[in-house]
Design a protein around this nucleic acid. Structure first.
Lengths: 138, 138
DNA sequence: TAACATTTTGCAACATTGTTGCAATTGTAT
DNA sequence: ATACAATTGCAACAATGTTGCAAAATGTTA
């Protein structure tokens, strides 16, 4: 597991630091989206707030994680799949937010439906957020 | 116009105050989503920040406006259609964010596509955010 | 491994955004 | 017009996010 995390960093040409390893590990361990606050809370080591912000930003820039728009406008981040590269995200998948437990999941295997857009508009990216109740909360 | 705004407040059983009239007017005048910051900026009168927050919250509670999740996690609000009532929003429509001008529009006439959700999950609400270039920026 | 250059971290200070309690003001109904 | 209820604005605070800079950690080269 640790090796996988190290590999991701290497592959993105990032130097291997404790903060990056630990934070990236949190994402691989918890199979759900994490907020900045989550990371500060669940991490054993107490990182400086600034470090967490900068690490998350670096990961987003490198295509390691992506940010998720949520209904309550808290910033959530989740691991990208292999198709994401630096400067170009392919996170056209459905995000599911459970209203019970509050967890946010990426539903990678669900296809984004085609959205019809009025004439004269062009589409760059489509985000689909589904609120509901997840399997474990049912 | 002013009457229409007054009517909306009356219909929602809200007392008619200057702040509510002015803020609601901003929404009816500008045919796009507004952020808290927008409202403070474009309003002639300088409302207290707290008043704006509370007014927006009241409008959301009463089903007059709805909040829109955005990719950069800034909070946007837009007028609801008549189908929205207190405590129950029907804002299942597509939101379009122009990457050029930054404006956010409700595409009320575009149907929300059906999203397939894994077994064991149930759906309450679906939000669709489309990023792209709008008609006027093309 | 040691020394150096580069990057990252943590601190401090600050800016922005959002919240709460309370007194003063405004709106509504009688 | 008066009285009651609701709303507003102020002050103080809490949370969230940003920037510059010195110290520490990392990567590289010899």
């Amino acid at each position: 597991m640790k090796e996988a995390v190290t590999d991701i960093l290497k592959h993105s040409q990032l130097s291997i630091t404790e903060s990056r390893l630990k934070i990236l590990e949190l994402f691989t361990k918890h199979n759900k989206a994490l907020s900045h606050a989550d990371i500060e809370k669940i991490s054993s080591k107490n990182f400086d707030r600034v470090t967490v912000y900068r690490t998350l930003q670096t990961f987003v820039d490198k295509g390691i994680i992506h940010s998720i728009p949520t209904a309550d406008n808290s910033v959530m981040y989740a691991l990208c799949k292999e198709t994401c590269t630096e400067g170009h995200h392919h996170d056209d998948h459905v995000h599911f937010i459970c209203d019970e437990c509050g967890n946010t999941y990426c539903l990678d295997n669900i296809d984004i439906p085609k959205v019809t857009i009025p004439k004269g508009f062009s589409t760059h990216q489509v985000n689909v957020l589904v609120n509901g109740v997840c399997k474990s909360c049912k």
